[in-house]
Simulated scan of single mutants.
Amino acid sequence: MDGEGAGEAATRSEATIKATVIYQPSDLERRQEVAGGLDELVRGARAKAKDKPSGTDLVRDA
């Protein structure tokens, strides 16, 4: 911010606040989308793992 006047700093700050408010709902939507995708991945991995013996089962049977 070298050489920047108070007015320029205030304008930049206002723009940052406005952008934060505008993008906040989309950020929430994106986090929900990512969480949903992770949930699908975990559920799929757990379903696949049901068909295979666990590491504990393999050691016990050794």
Rank of each mutant, 00 (worst) to 15 (best):
A15I: 04
D39T: 08
D39I: 10
T16R: 11
R12N: 11
R46Q: 15
V21G: 02
I22C: 02
K52P: 12
S54C: 13
D27P: 01
A15S: 05
A9L: 09
R60C: 11
T16M: 12
R31I: 08
Q24I: 05
A9F: 06
L28I: 10
Q32R: 05
E33R: 00
R12Q: 11
K50H: 11
K18A: 09
Q32N: 08
P25C: 00
D39H: 05
A35D: 15
A19E: 14
E4R: 02
V21I: 14
Q24N: 02
Q32H: 07
K48I: 07
G37P: 06
R12P: 02
T16L: 15
G5L: 03
S13I: 15
L28R: 02
P53A: 02
Q32S: 05
G36V: 15
K50A: 15
G5N: 06
A35G: 13
V59K: 01
A47P: 12
Y23G: 09
L28H: 02
L41I: 09
L38R: 10
R12V: 07
A15L: 09
A6T: 11
E8Y: 06
A45W: 12
A9C: 03
P53G: 02
A47R: 11
A6C: 14
R43C: 07
A47S: 10
E33H: 02
A49K: 01
E4W: 00
I17L: 13
E40V: 06
K50Y: 08
R31F: 00
G37I: 04
G44T: 14
R30E: 15
K52H: 04
V59H: 00
I17T: 06
D57C: 06
